[in-house]
Amino acid sequence: MVDSVLRVDGIQKSFGGLRAVNDVSFSASRGELLGLIGPNGAGKTTIFNMVSGIYRTDSGQIFFDGTDITNRHPTRIARWGIARTFQVPRTFNNMTLEENIRVALLQVNIVDAEATRQACAVLDEVGLYAKRHQNASELSGGERQLLQFVRAAVTRPRLMMLDEPFAGSSPGAIDCMVERTVALSRSGVTCLVISHDIVSLPRVCERVVVLLDGAVLTQGKLEDVREDPKVIEAYLGE
C-alpha cells in the first residue's frame, strides 16, 4: 500500500513452546481506523507489544512510515510517533491527573506553564478537569481508560494503538473516546483498535483484521467480516 503508515510483515512471536503470533501481516494507511479483533488468546495484545517494542519479534518485520522499526527500543518507537494505551490502564496512580498529562507532554517538549495550560485543557475536554489535582488512584476504571487515552493523544502521535479502550468504561466515556478517535483519524492519525465491544467497534472502525490462535483468519470491511462463516464460528458466534 503506497500510503501505508504501518506495515506488519510476517511477524512471529513464541513464548516457550507456545506460538502466540504466527506469520501475521497487515497494513494500515494514513488516517485509517483499523480494528484488531479475535477471541482471548488470539495474539492481539502481543502484536501491540511487538509494534511498540515491548516484546522482541522472533521473525518478520514492522515498518512505520517506511522505516523498519522491528525490535527497536520502546522509547525510540514512541518518539517516532507511535502512542499506545494498555488493556489494564497503566495510569500513574501516585500522580495527579495533571501530572499524568504533563509527563506525556514531555515527549513533545511542552513544559512549565504551557504544560499546565494544555493539561488543564485536555482534562476539561474529557470532563476530568475538576479532578485534575486528585491522584489517578482515585479514578474509576473507566475514568482511567479515558485518562490513558488522552495521555497518549497529547503526544501528537502519527499512529495511535488502543488496547480495549472501551472495557469497563461508562457510556459517556465510550462516546468521548469514540468521538476523539474519529477526530484523530480525520486529522490524519492512524488508529489501531483492539476491542471486544462489538457495539462500539463499528462506530470507530470500518476495516478489521480478525485473529485466531495467533494467525490472521481474515481481514476486510467489518460488515463483510461479520458475515464470514469462519469468523462466526471462531469469534462472533451469532
Binding site: 520502546p74 522509547t75 518518539r79 497503566r90 501516585n94 509527563v103 514531555l106 515527549q107 497518549a152
Partner: peptide, 20 residues
C-alpha cells in the same frame, strides 16, 4: 515526574517516550 512515572509503570513510561 519522569522518575515517579517510571517507578510505577516502566512500560507505560517508555510508551510515552521517557528514556527509562
Amino acid at each position: 515526574r519522569a522518575i515517579r512515572a517510571t517507578s510505577e509503570h516502566p512500560d507505560a513510561a517508555m510508551a510515552m517516550g521517557i528514556d527509562v
